[in-house]
Design a protein around this nucleic acid. Structure first.
Length: 226
DNA sequence: GGCCAGGCACAGC
DNA sequence: GCTGTGCATGGC
């Protein structure tokens, strides 16, 4: 197992870039939509989230102030397909109400807020854990954090790197310093790592077998050049 | 029908 | 501190 040294991280970045290039990533049209998607995707596949997003979009509820203006019951019905809808409607409604009241939108919030301010603001909220927080900070507010999710963990582990999930912050710190706290590179490396996970774990049995038996080759011809 | 999905909070040790 | 559990729908 390789430690996550700077050269290893740069190697991952360069190698994946050859296949995927600039992905930009996070399928959303506004910062508000990023945050909404981040809550909805908690322990849920993106396909189910997409259906909820479509309903919200259709009803013109895909922004914080619109969500804060409807009832929690109505919101719960609209996001049903994402599962955990009672829990998520509560989390989403309180987040959106606060953002709408304090800033109007996440787009407006983006101007001039510091990383520490934003981190404190969101982590005080119910239902915003580490991953959701970091997704919002990076993809909605353009602040430099590394997003560690189940896909990222799985791919890095399968690539043979030492990932200690009990010490996530040290992993995150390794990526942050290796990538010079560059927001665009942080966005893209997470996107590329997730793309690898999706490309190689599209069918669950295959992925499960791959993880359990450690016999799946992320570095086959399709992924890597050298 | 069984298992799992891009978490999180909270109770009980 | 760590582990187990509830939350719930939809796809395979």
């Amino acid at each position: 197992m390789k430690p996550l040294r700077k050269d290893a991280i740069l190697w991952i970045e360069n190698t994946l870039f050859l296949k995927y290039g600039n992905m930009g990533w996070w399928p959303a049209e506004s910062p508000d939509e990023v945050a909404i998607g981040a809550i909805l995707t908690q322990n849920t596949s993106w396909k189910n989230v997409e259906k909820s997003i479509a309903v919200l979009r259709q009803n013109r509820h895909l922004n914080c102030c619109a969500i804060s203006s409807i009832s929690r019951d109505e919101l719960a019905m609209e996001i049903r397909s994402s599962g955990f809808y009672n829990q998520k409607s509560l989390r989403l409604h309180s987040l959106c109400s606060k953002v709408c009241a304090d800033y109007g939108s996440l787009d407006a919030m983006r101007n001039g807020i510091s990383l520490d301010e934003a981190r404190n603001y969101f982590s005080a909220m119910n239902g915003i854990g580490r991953e959701t927080l970091h997704s919002i900070l990076l993809y909605a507010l353009d602040l430099p954090v590394f997003v560690m999710d189940k896909y990222t963990e799985r791919v890095l582990t399968r690539m043979g790197f030492m990932i200690d999930m009990k010490n996530v912050s040290s992993v995150e710190e390794s990526f942050l310093s290796a990538l010079d706290h560059d927001v665009d590179r942080l966005k893209n490396i997470h996107a590329m790592l997730d793309a690898v996970a999706k490309d190689y774990c599209q069918s669950r049995p295959k992925c499960r077998e791959c993880v359990l038996n450690q016999n799946c080759d992320y570095w086959g011809k399709e992924v890597i050049v050298p």
